[in-house]
Design a protein around this nucleic acid. Structure first.
Lengths: 143, 143
DNA sequence: GTAGAACCTGGAGTGCGCTCCAGGTCAAGC
DNA sequence: GCTTGACCTGGAGCGCACTCCAGGTTCTAC
């Protein structure tokens, strides 16, 4: 044992990049890219410079994934991450960002539902052309 | 007047690329790109080779826009357009494409709603931190 | 008939969000 | 101690869906 003790707390509490990739569905490359881009703060390292993610890193990544899934750009996530890193003084601004994003998301969902309706019309039109019965009435009720 | 009569039917019935761009929100470049990519059949031309769109072209473009809005890739729209161009024998295949796309869309909408809920939780968390009243309860009811 | 705006083509360039690569270092099991 | 697989870095490359450009032609209004 040298004087180096890379990870003080419970040895079970950290994850390798492969484990985080598995849990999040992100690739190793994307995880490194997100870190380089400043979406996540520099992750803890072993003495040999390999990443060891903590639970908080994982939780933050999962939040980022939700933002991504709802269509937030990397640039906006960078802005949010910067605010978060700047501390409590930015809470109001972060809240404003989330509210705005939430409103855009609501609009997107409404637009998708409208388009879904139009798609259903088109599908019914094609079914009429074929004289086909609708397939399993109610395949995915999203209206 | 030469022997050329570029557009036989009613003169009011066709649109220039600028007019179609205005109506669809697509740029001139995108309209030409879609044509080159085979998303729309070659549009009618004047004697001088300038595009004159007909009502059916516009209707098809609007359908394509709906597919695009619901997340269909250009490659898939190309496939659909090819089937359409091939005639009635492909109706069943087109219907299958639309049904599959519709199912994916339903799944996407469900995922977005789930994420919207998580976002709402986060927003409430931040509101708690600030001791703020929620802003206009019910800004965009999408749950 | 002419000016200026609108349009044409082929092809290069752009921004986004990754993804891949080369050339190394590190860690874990035997 | 060695092997083998996992990991590291900086930077190049990619696929998608456009967007821009150069250099030329056409249309419309006067």
């Amino acid at each position: 044992m040298t004087s180096e003790q890379p990870l003080p707390r419970g040895r079970e509490a950290t994850l390798t990049i492969a484990e985080v990739a598995e849990r999040t569905g992100l690739s190793h490359d994307t995880l490194r890219y997100y870190e380089k881009a400043g979406l996540i703060a520099r992750v803890g390292r072993t003495g040999g410079n390999q990443r060891r993610y903590e639970a908080t890193d994982l939780a933050w990544l999962e939040f980022l994934l939700r933002l991504r899934e709802t269509g937030m750009s990397i640039a906006d996530m960078q802005r949010f991450a910067r605010l978060r890193a700047a501390g409590d003084a930015t809470v109001a601004e972060r809240l404003a960002m989330l509210r705005e994003h939430r409103a855009e998301l609501a609009a997107r969902i409404r637009a998708l539902r409208r388009s879904a309706g139009a798609l259903d019309d088109k599908i019914r039109h094609y079914e009429g052309l074929l004289g086909t019965m609708p397939e399993r009435p109610g395949t995915g009720d999203t209206r």
